[in-house]
Design a protein around this nucleic acid. Sequence first.
DNA 1: GTCCTGATCCTCT
DNA 2: GAGGATCAGGACG
Length: 197
Amino acid sequence: MNPLVLPPTFYSASTVTVARRLLGTCLIHESDEGLCAGRIVETEAYLRDDPACHASRGQTTRNAVMFGPPGHVYVYLIYGMYNCFNVVTAAEGIGEAVLVRALEPLAGIELMRQRRGRSELKELCSGPGKLVQAMGVTRSHNGAALTHGALTLHAAERFGGIPRFEISVSQRIGINVGVELPLRFCVKGSTFLSKKG
DNA sequence: GTCCTGATCCTCT
DNA sequence: GAGGATCAGGACG
C-alpha cells in the first residue's frame, strides 16, 4: 500500500480531531476519465448528539454508512441536485462524520473544469456540491473505503506538503439547527474556502 | 400513500 | 440579495 495513504487508524480519533487533521490532506480520485486531486482546506464536524447530524435520530437506510467503520465515504444527495462528501469517523455503531466543504485543486484541473463547466480555479471546489462535481464523485462511492480503491485520502506530503498554516474555527454554514456550535475548521487565509473563514 | 424538508449552487437584479 | 431548480428519505396517517 502507498505509505502516504492515510491508515484506518487516522479516522478512529474523535470526530473533531479528525476534522482538524483532515485539513491539508489530499483527496485523490482515479477514474476512467483521469486523475483528480485536491487539498482539503475546509471541514465541518457532525456529532452524534448534534441535531444537524443525519445520524442524530438513529440509524436509517440512508445514513447507515455513518454507523459503519470509520474511514469510509458517506455521499448524500442534498436539495435534489447536489451531493455532499463526508468522511465517516468514530467507532462503528456511533454515527459521526466530517463534511468536506472545500478543496484546493492540485491535479486534473482541466478535467475539473470540464465537469464543472467553469474555468476559474476558485470556482472548481469552493463548496460541498462543487467539489463533489469537480472530483467526479457520485453516490456510487457511498460506503467506499478511503484507504484503498479509486478514491483515497493521502497525507499532505503527497503533493509536496502545505506550508505551516493556522486553523480557523467558526460556526457551521447552511444549516438551521446547531448553528452556534464551533465545528467548522478552515485553513486560515486560503483562497479556496467556500466562504470567508 | 402524501407531504415536506434540506449539510446547495447558479442566475438574475 | 433573492429566488428557483429538483428529488430522496423520513414523518406522518
